[in-house]
Design a protein around this nucleic acid. Structure first.
Length: 629
RNA sequence: GCCGGAGUAGCUCAGCUGGUAGAGCAGCUGAUUUGUAAUCAGCAGGCCGUCGGUUCGAGUCCGACCUCCGGCUCCA
């Protein structure tokens, strides 16, 4: 048989030859370094047979950045971890242990809880295994045989996995440890050069909090010590960009026990906040949104009408009101907007009607879920609700997508779009969902945005498009959302008079593009590592007088810039120029103007963030600034 | 809510087996009048997260709670 190599040449092999045979046929060195073979894009064990005519690629220890090569290394290391834990903790029950981004984990049920100091012991045990050396052997057995085997071993989780699997089952054995596993795996532990256990966490069996909570051990592995070191350094670097560190450091914002999950915005943070608000307001106006303001507190009955009370009552802040009543602090704006729409007779001529509001929402989040600015209890959304007819849906969704795209482009941000379709416990008919899902899809395709499909993840009232971004440590957060709702208007008894002289229930598009302003600024801080573009920078220009005698002239320059709406400040401290420059760099001020004997309005000394220097006249500098803002 | 960790000066951290709380930076004062990433000296700064317990004695040991960190779950 023949296989096709990456350079398109063909390799003649005996029938039934494996990836390892192919590697050996090419060269002994390749065979020694091989870890995996990719057949027609799918990776498999080196010792499994190849098929005639397939394109193959041998992955080696030198493919240290290849996602598949790393995944197999880590997956095999996860099995070593399980073996080590079983040796150290007899009676432990094992669950699952897959590779993940940047590492792997394995879930266990320990009879006694373990603490973080256990990680060192386990890591040492893995080290011993690596010294002894391990090789993996794959076998295929029937489901029944696998079940009996794991029952005999007292592994209820494995038994459960076997029971829900279909067809034959593959097992991998290394040392004294056999695991149910799809593979692929390394041939032996030789390529595993660096292992580090990175954390301990509780995790529910099958991700369901009604199930037993298992103990998850996280780790990572690399093909070299140097790669591990580089990985740890990258993590350090990422931590330095963390908005929770940079926000307070640059005096933008802080959080405090006095108001958990409710940020204190400092003057410099407010500059960014207000700049975003200005952007929101002007862009909304351009696109036909009407700004409104609705109450913060509503009678609990309102939340019962909207349906939130039933589902989210524990997550709402509620205050008593008189003897009998209670008011719920709004966790979202929609009921307010529904009530506003319903406060008058509406005609189809009024539609689409786009209400925009950015007011404070409060959500009483479960303990343990708060996270810097990315998960807060005081939430401000750039919210809007669009009331429209069935025919207008696609156009309105398109408008939202286009709007979102243009905003994220402005920040040089790439958001991932996800389309979530009908869930199991949906309201409305299948025909209805066919129509609305198609409308969203059509809008996505027309706007030309790539999107992932999230089947069954829609809201109970309609499909939605979510925008996601990652934080500096790679965690994914939902930013904007565009949701189609065919239920809430009916719950609030809303209607409009159609051209047919009949009453109709409007559709509503709920949409927030930045999402939560708090979260957006958190992501923004990390995105720019606080080196904001000029138009967002809290301080745009800092004037540094060289000596005492230059303060007056420097102040005059500052005044001229301020008069042109440039955010400028003057560093009058009794410090050296070098020190003031350094502080401005640390604060990420975009421009520093040093003013001393050598400068005049005809020739300033301008230093850009990073060090580039130039000597424009005040007039030229101002023109440049205004153009960039 | 759950699992594992942590809370010491404004910030970053040290403080061993229980015995009077420490550094650097920032701050303040003074000297210096500065030329593109840290001038020098002095001073001040603490309910050791909160509450309770053990002890002659608790930052240190134990318990509860609060907040934060890494995860799980949840996220209208």
């Amino acid at each position: 048989m023949r296989v096709i190599l990456p350079d398109s040449s063909e390799l003649e092999l005996p029938d039934g030859a494996s990836g390892l045979d192919a590697a050996a046929a090419i060269g002994p060195k390749l065979a020694r370094e091989a870890v995996l073979v990719r057949v027609n894009g799918v990776v498999q064990d080196l010792r499994l047979p190849l098929e005639d005519g397939e394109p193959i690629q041998i992955l080696t220890t030198r493919d240290r950045d290849d996602p598949d090569a790393l995944a197999v290394l880590r997956h095999s290391t996860a099995h070593l971890l399980a073996e080590a834990v079983r040796r150290l903790y007899p009676g432990v029950k094992i669950a699952i242990g897959p590779p993940i981004a940047n590492g792997f984990y394995y879930d266990f049920e320990f009879s006694e809880p373990i603490g973080e100091d256990a990680l060192q012991r386990i890591e040492a045990e893995i080290g011993r295994e690596l010294e002894e050396g391990r090789s993996w052997k794959r076998e295929e057995v029937s489901g029944e045989a696998a079940r009996e085997r794991f029952e005999a071993e007292g592994e209820p989780y494995k038994v459960e996995l076997v029971e829900t699997a279909e067809g034959d089952i593959s097992l991998y054995t290394q040392g004294e440890f056999t695991d149910l596993c799809r593979g692929p795996h390394l041939q032996d532990s030789g390529p595993i050069k660096a292992v580090k256990l990175t954390g301990l966490a509780g995790a529910y069996w099958r991700g369901d909090e009604r199930n037993t909570q298992l103990t998850r051990i996280y780790g990572t592995a690399f093909y070299s010590e140097a790669d591990l070191k580089e990985h740890l350094e990258r993590l350090d670097e990422a931590r330095r960009r963390d908005h929770r560190r940079l926000g307070p450091q640059l005096d933008l914002v802080h959080l405090s026990d006095h108001a958990p999950g409710m940020p204190f915005w400092h003057p410099k943070g407010m500059v960014i906040w207000n700049t975003l608000e200005d952007l929101r307001r002007s862009e909304n106006a351009k696109r036909g949104y009407l700004e409104v303001k609705t109450p913060l507190l509503y009678d609990v009955q309102t939340w019962q009408t909207s349906g939130h009370w039933e589902k989210f009552r524990d997550d709402m802040f509620v205050v008593p009101y008189g003897e009998e009543r209670a008011l719920g602090l709004k966790p979202m704006n929609c009921p307010g907007h529904m009530l506003m729409f319903g406060s008058a007779l509406r005609s189809y001529r009024d539609l689409p009607l786009r209400y925009a509001e950015s007011s404070t929402l409060h959500r009483n989040e479960r303990a343990g879920t708060l996270h810097g600015l990315l998960r807060v209890q005081h939430v401000t959304q750039d919210d809007a609700h669009i009331f429209c007819t069935r025919e207008q849906i696609e156009e309105e969704i398109f408008g939202c997508l286009d709007f979102a795209k243009s905003v994220y482009d402005l920040f040089e941000m790439e958001a991932r779009f996800e389309l979530s379709t009908r869930p199991e416990n949906k309201l409305g008919t299948d025909e209805e969902w066919d129509f609305t899902e198609e409308a969203l899809k059509a809008a996505l395709e027309r706007r030309g945005v790539a999107y992932e499909l999230n089947e069954g993840d829609g809201a109970f009232y309609g499909p939605k498009i979510d925008l996601h971004m990652n934080d500096v440590l790679g965690r994914s957060w939902q930013m904007g959302t565009i949701q189609l709702d065919a239920q809430m208007p009916a719950r609030f008894g809303l209607s409009y008079m159609g051209a047919d002289n009949e009453e109709h229930t409007p559709y509503v598009v709920h949409r927030a593009l930045l999402g939560s302003l708090e979260r957006f600024i958190g992501i923004l801080i990390e995105h720019y590592a606080c080196a904001f573009p000029l138009w967002l920078a809290p301080i745009q220009v800092r004037i540094v007088p060289v000596g005492e005698g230059h303060r007056k002239a420097a102040a005059a320059v500052a005044e001229r810039l301020a008069a042109a709406d440039i955010r400028v400040d003057l560093d009058e401290r009794d410090e050296t120029v070098g020190r003031k420059i350094r502080d401005a760099e640390v604060e990420k001020v975009p421009y520093v103007v040093v003013f001393g004997d050598r400068e005049s309005e005809d020739s300033l000394s301008v230093r850009e963030r990073g060090g580039a220097q130039s000597s424009p006249s005040l007039h030229e500098f101002l023109r440049e600034l205004v153009a960039k803002v």
